[in-house]
């Protein structure tokens, strides 16, 4: 799965904007957005917010968690804990990436937030790597994926599932596994 596809899923998250135009409710398959009143905040999906921002029809309000103190607290918690800590959003990396890219002028302290988010990302990625290596080496039967976000899970998708598949194959001594024989009979 391409990271931009994960980003596409992340675009469905809601964000508050302050429109500078008035418009009725827009009915979409995924739900209705609006009505838009100039100057009053309204929650819309990120993809719409980005599009409106690019046309300079709105101002984006930073997500609640995009606050340097809260992020620094998360960094500390992440450092202290052996396990993954809960992130404010299942798509924190992609949301931050998109919103900071499109609207750095609307988000206060954008540069520091970008660094903090990157710090959290790096911390979690190295944690993820070492736990994957440990998982493979000790032949764990299951892994707890609590609080892992979509982008992080996607980042090991290119390697881990296939490695586990190879290991399963070897465990069965090269014979077709139960799953494969199921597939062929179906």
């Amino acid at each position: 799965m391409d990271p931009s596809e994960v980003e596409f899923l992340g675009e469905k998250q809601l964000v508050s904007i302050v429109p500078n135009f008035s418009f009725g409710i827009i009915h979409l398959i995924s739900g209705s957005v609006g009505p838009f009143r100039a100057g009053l905040p309204v929650k819309v999906p990120i993809w719409l917010a980005i599009s409106l921002k690019q046309q300079q029809k709105c101002r984006i309000i930073a997500q609640e968690w995009m606050d340097i103190e809260k992020l620094n607290d998360s960094i500390e918690a992440e450092k202290r804990s052996k396990l993954f800590t809960k992130m404010p959003s299942n798509h924190f990396m992609d949301e931050a990436q998109m919103l900071l890219m499109v609207a750095p002028d609307d988000i206060p302290d954008a540069d520091n937030i970008r660094t903090a988010v990157k710090d959290i990302w790096d911390l979690r990625m190295s944690k993820l790597r070492s736990s994957v290596i440990g998982f493979v080496k000790n032949a764990g039967t299951y892994a707890k994926l609590d609080h892992l976000t979509a982008m992080e899970i996607n980042s090991i998708r290119s390697l881990l599932p296939d490695a586990l598949d190879i290991m399963l194959h070897m465990e069965h001594g090269g014979k077709p596994t139960v799953l494969q024989s199921l597939n062929t009979t179906m």
Partner: peptide, 8 residues
Amino acid sequence: KSRFRIIM
């Protein structure tokens, strides 16, 4: 398993 580390 032990060589997986190199790949990773």
